[in-house]
Design a protein around this nucleic acid. Structure first.
Length: 273
DNA sequence: CTTATTCCCTGATTGC
DNA sequence: TGCAATCAGGGAATAA
């Protein structure tokens, strides 16, 4: 579902389409009262957006940020099934449409979300939403020394820690498994047992996996669609995720699937130590 | 502080 | 064929 590569793909596609555009119409579905996280009232939320011009499209972890011309920032998190699709025409309302925004060139941003878990904010200071996120893996901010420091003394399984956005921003279930496989480290390892050399390998693996997936436009095993409404291609390039029972692509061992903190976890017990 | 668990959500899939 | 249980997982909230 949308993790860093998916959100980055959407950001790149939306940028030329919405920068310098003004939001002239906004509608939030009453079927999804929790979409507006702040301000929580849909009318107040809409009125903060109307008439505002979008200055740029940014990303922090899995959050999309739209700085506005009055100093506020519109922030979107797609969570599990959210999709933000740019359309030239309005078109008829459809079943899972949860919000719709019209721009001053007549085009639209459609927000679809089957499971209604996504959230949006309009805030004066984006730090109140994204302030606790860890380093950005693709901006050179993620370094092994800092990761090692953050992991010191931690007993939770490494996989669970990688999903904590305060440690590293942007990893979700798919890419946490992929990065640990790429690094040759077991997802079950207590975080604090990582050696400096392993932390270095893990940082490198995280960057490689996330940038590779971004080049493929993200992963569409299920519902993920990019800003053009199209599927990504990285599901054809994953190396462990959902490959349980199949041979490991590095050592030939058998990939195993287990359950870790309620999340499915895939790894190769013979080369991930 | 840390770690583990539950809940939010609903369509698709699986099991009997 | 039908219906119930399970699965998918990002992140907030809660419990211990």
């Amino acid at each position: 579902m949308p993790e860093l590569p998916e959100v980055e793909t959407i950001r790149r596609q939306l940028s030329p389409l919405v920068v310098d555009r003004t939001i002239v119409e906004a509608w939030l579905s009453p079927e999804m009262p929790r979409l507006a996280a702040h301000p929580p009232d849909a009318c107040a939320f809409v009125s903060r957006l109307l008439g505002r011009r979008v200055l740029s499209v940014e990303r922090r972890g899995k959050f999309l940020l739209f700085p506005l011309d009055d100093g506020q920032t519109w922030i979107v998190h797609l969570r599990m099934t959210g999709a933000l699709v740019h359309r030239v025409d309005g078109g008829p309302e459809e079943r899972f449409l949860r919000a719709r925004f019209r721009l001053d060139d007549g085009s639209w941003l459609w927000y679809r979300d089957v499971r209604k878990l996504g959230r949006m904010w309009v805030v004066a200071d984006p730090e109140q939403v994204v302030g606790k996120l860890g380093p950005e893996p693709l901006s050179g901010c993620l370094d092994a020394a800092a990761l090692l420091r953050a992991l010191r003394g931690r007993k939770a399984p490494l996989k669970a820690l990688l999903l904590d956005q305060r440690l590293v921003a942007g990893l979700g279930n798919i890419y946490a498994d992929e990065a640990l496989h790429e690094a040759g480290i077991s997802p079950l390892r207590p975080g604090g047992t990582l050696a400096p050399e392993e932390a270095e390998r893990l940082c490198l693996a995280i960057r490689r996996v996330l940038s590779g997936a971004t080049r493929h436009g993200g992963t569409s095993f299920w519902s993920y669609l990019d800003a053009r409404g199209e599927r990504g291609q990285h599901q054809f390039h994953v190396r462990v995720y959902r490959r349980q029972g199949q041979p490991c692509l590095r050592c030939g061992g058998t990939v195993v699937r287990t359950r870790l903190g309620g999340r499915s976890t895939h790894y190769c017990p013979s080369c991930q130590v």
